[in-house]
């Protein structure tokens, strides 16, 4: 498989002077096209920072991140924005939707940035995605009128609008109840099956169970990797995978 993302000896620091500390301390990782990777670790271990570095949303202080053959540190802010808009999708813990816009407008917003002339196709595509994700009835609604699970689906629809190569998720189910969480993860698994690379950060083993690779990060370094392989998403399969992951996490000290 082609390598989609290469992180080489990535360093990211916060704070100033003597207070400055490396949140990422020489992280190296390769993510192949079509991978489903979960990054786990305790609070403050640097997992979200790694996700932001891999997606080019945060500039790194050392090392480099290569996305689809392009060194992200060499790109300008605007070129990075173009890459994010055209090749990446994002799903955050909170819905990160614009309150002034309707649900449909939020979904099509990034695509309308340079596709205004294709407005009709964009609208149609958004409707299909909403239909697929089960939120068709929200189209004209205000974002404040939707539930947390629905909003997360809106976020996923928005992420899928550009047919991204990768979807990055930062605790995408962190604010949801277990039912909604399962539904969202099932959705992401479907998306992955269609060929999209997925990289997500989570502290929830149930969520990580869906991933093929689980990276464990501690004090800014990747200290372990659990290869779970592909799954059939059956309850039984998931239960077995969850058991294996729990055992590994115990080994990692959690």
């Amino acid at each position: 498989m082609n390598t989609m993302i290469i992180a080489e000896n990535v360093v990211k620091s916060f704070g100033q002077g003597t207070e400055r500390r490396n949140v990422l301390d020489g992280v190296s990782v390769d993510i192949a096209a079509g991978d489903f990777v979960a990054i786990m670790g305790p609070s403050g271990s640097g997992k979200s920072t790694l996700l932001f570095a891999l997606s080019g949303m945060d500039a790194v202080d050392g090392g480099r991140v290569v996305f689809d053959g392009v060194d992200l540190s060499q790109l300008s802010d605007d070129a990075l924005a173009d890459v994010r808009r055209r090749r990446m999708g994002f799903v955050f813990q909170q819905p990160t939707l614009l309150r002034n816009l309707s649900v449909l407008d939020n979904i099509i917003l990034p695509s309308m940035r340079d596709g205004r002339k294709r407005a009709r196709q964009i609208r149609e595509k958004a409707r299909i995605l909403m239909e697929t994700t089960g939120i068709a009835e929200l189209e004209a609604r205000d974002v404040t009128q939707a539930s947390g699970g629905q909003l997360q689906r809106v976020g996923i629809c928005r992420a899928l609008m550009s047919d991204p190569a990768v979807i990055f998720g930062d605790e995408p189910t962190g604010a949801l109840n277990s039912t909604a969480s399962n539904e969202i993860m099932a959705l992401l698994a479907d998306i992955h099956r269609s060929g999209t690379t997925i990289v997500l950060v989570t502290h929830d083993p149930k969520v990580a169970t869906r991933a093929e690779r689980v990276l464990f990060i501690l004090d800014g370094r990747i200290t372990g990797e659990h290869l779970a392989g592909a799954h059939d998403a059956s309850r039984e399969d998931l239960r077995v995978r969850e058991g294996a992951l729990s055992g590994w996490l115990t080994e990692m000290g959690i």
Partner: peptide
């Protein structure tokens, strides 16, 4: 700030 960050995250440039 938050709304700007959201838009940037989804690919809007500084010029946008």
């Amino acid at each position: 700030r938050h709304a700007i960050a959201v838009m940037k995250a989804f690919g809007f440039t500084n010029s946008d």
